[in-house]
Design a binder for these strands. Structure first.
Lengths: 166, 166
DNA sequence: GGTAAGTAGCTTAGCGCTAAGCTACTTACC
DNA sequence: GGTAAGTAGCTTAGCGCTAAGCTACTTACC
């Protein structure tokens, strides 16, 4: 292992010292996955901040955007896609509606349901924000890995994600 | 790409359809990192539940445990290691102290400071819980990757973590 | 057409966190 | 020894989430 050690190496080394019976390979992988999520979360927050939205709010706008025209989904579809309770989704939609980034209208076919639609401003904001977010991620990725390695990493993560039942 | 597609492949495909100008490689990587954290978080919660502790509380006990005898650190050291505000740490320590898994005592050299020490029960609990948690992670890892791949993944993640400033 | 089971979106209580600010110290410097 | 700056741990207000439960529907089946 000639690579520069990182905080996770320090943690596994500590465990190896006090509990040499433990296999530290799993924590070497998942510890880094967890920390990557943490450190990137901060960076993404900063990328979306100029647009006045949080990561969670971006996710709502992005889900509507990538569903294609007319950029309309139900709160239920959104909460299912984003693995969020309906209560949590109500809060996010309230904030985004107040900010004028989307609108809620009655579903013409089901009187229990609503249709959530991106506003023109919402469309503009998400189109700029997604580019800003991708730029931050690409910067981190390209600073660390070449194209072949990035592809390799994607493949390994896909396999692992399958095994965790995603 | 002969691998079975996963939910992240579906998302990148949707983006490619509506915004073909975007480079989806970064989201293919970080989207999976994020989802892995999410799905494993649920599994780890279930692994620690029999011991009556949450993931966050486990992290406190584990940090004390791997610091070695006498399993003592200050609240400040703990909150710095776990990247948590001191207010958040106060709450975790309160819960763990009430559960009898650790104790707080005055620092003999600095009257502002405290010393947090694992109780005997805390030591037993964390030793069992760390094994239970590792078993869950090992199960997922071994179901997905062979030894060479796991090593490769660790190396790629270490590089990427460096680039995100960890 | 009537009724039971299911679903959509919302409200509420509670949880764990952060940001800000507090008191009680300790440290550095004159 | 006095004073300014720094630090430890705590409290409080506010945030975004979940779990549970609600009303207003829709669907399936007799």
């Amino acid at each position: 292992m000639t690579a520069t050690p990182d905080p996770v190496d320090a943690i596994t080394a500590q465990w190896a010292a006090v509990r040499p019976d433990l296999d530290t390979v799993p924590m070497a992988v998942f510890g880094r996955v967890y920390r990557l999520t943490q450190t990137m979360a901060e960076r993404m927050d900063r990328a979306y901040a100029p647009f006045g939205i949080s990561r969670g709010e971006f996710d709502v706008l992005a889900t509507l955007r990538r569903s294609g025209e007319p950029y309309t989904l139900s709160p239920r579809q959104l909460s299912a896609t984003l693995m969020l309770t309906t209560g949590g989704m109500t809060g996010r939609l309230d904030k985004l509606e107040r900010a004028g980034l989307l609108g809620r209208s009655p579903d013409p076919h089901d009187r229990r349901a609503l249709r959530v639609t991106l506003s023109e401003r919402g469309l503009r904001v998400v189109d700029e924000a997604v580019a800003a977010g991708l730029a931050v991620q690409r910067e981190a990725l390209e600073a660390a890995l070449d194209e072949r390695e990035a592809e390799q990493l994607t493949g390994l993560l896909r396999k692992l994600l399958h095994a965790t039942g995603a």
